[in-house]
């Protein structure tokens, strides 16, 4: 049985929009919302901050990069939400975590000063603060095609053996500037260092997230195609700019 797009709806949860929202990552929310609405799919946006309850029925959960201070401020609250987030992740809820939130979805983040911030262990990885900031335009090769973005982090992330990276680095540093991996994915949970914001110039990946969320909720779906000529033009330009 297939449901008509016009009868569908999605609940998108934005985690810590105040504390973790640097480098335009809020654009990911807008990309998901608009690309759903342009197809007649209703979208309910829920902003979830410190002390707020995770709403029932979340279909997509997103989180952005933040400053070190932001990570410190949210860590206790995140631990409080951790059991629920872990349950939602294993239940197949689609999640996209960028940079700082990506790090905290791993097991731990050890800052440059040696302080250990506990992660929630959804992704099989650990991060340590490095001395060198990894900054610049990026290109990754992923299962969802070529992904362009911009990275800006000093955290060095190492995936567990056998863990699935989000992609391979074509240009840039990715997880650690050494092993060529970038990001991580487990089931429907994606973590990446890519700002840009990552979904706006990589519409095929934005649609992949929407498709997975709708599939989980409604069974087999086919997304109507959109005119992505502007998105793809911006993508093409990004591949040609200096690091």
């Amino acid at each position: 049985m297939t449901t008509k797009e016009t009868a569908m709806e999605l609940t998108i949860v934005h985690l810590y929009p105040k504390e973790m929202n640097i480098y335009g990552d809020t654009g990911n929310r807008l990309a998901l919302q608009k690309r759903a609405e342009w197809r007649g799919i209703a979208v309910d946006i829920q902003l979830v901050g410190i002390g707020d309850r995770l709403p029932d029925g979340a279909d997509i959960i997103i989180g952005g990069g933040g400053q070190d201070a932001g990570q410190g401020i949210i860590q206790d609250d995140l631990q409080h939400k951790a059991p629920q987030l872990r349950a939602l992740a294993s239940d197949g809820v689609v999640m996209l975590m960028i940079c700082g939130m990506y790090q905290l979805f791993g097991r731990s983040f050890t800052t440059h000063q040696g302080e250990i911030i506990k992660g929630i262990g959804v992704l099989p990885l650990e991060t340590t603060g490095g001395e060198v900031r990894m900054i610049g335009n990026t290109i990754y090769d992923t299962l969802y095609g070529e992904i362009v973005g911009y990275e800006n982090h000093s955290g060095v992330t190492v995936l567990d053996t056998g863990a699935q990276p989000f992609g391979r680095v074509v240009r840039g540093d990715g997880n650690n500037g050494g092993d060529g991996t970038e990001g991580c994915s487990v089931q429907n949970v994606f973590g990446t260092y890519s700002h840009g914001p990552v979904l706006v110039k990589n519409p095929q990946f934005a649609d992949e997230l929407l498709r997975r969320a709708l599939q989980r909720k409604y069974g087999t779906v086919r997304l109507a195609s959109l005119d992505d000529s502007i998105e793809l033009a911006a993508h093409a330009v990004a591949t040609m700019r200096p690091r």
Binding site: G24, D25, T26, Y150, N152, P197
Partner: peptide, 9 residues
């Protein structure tokens, strides 16, 4: 600034 992500803010 090389990063244009800020336009989304």
């Amino acid at each position: 600034g090389r990063d244009v992500s800020w336009l989304w803010d």
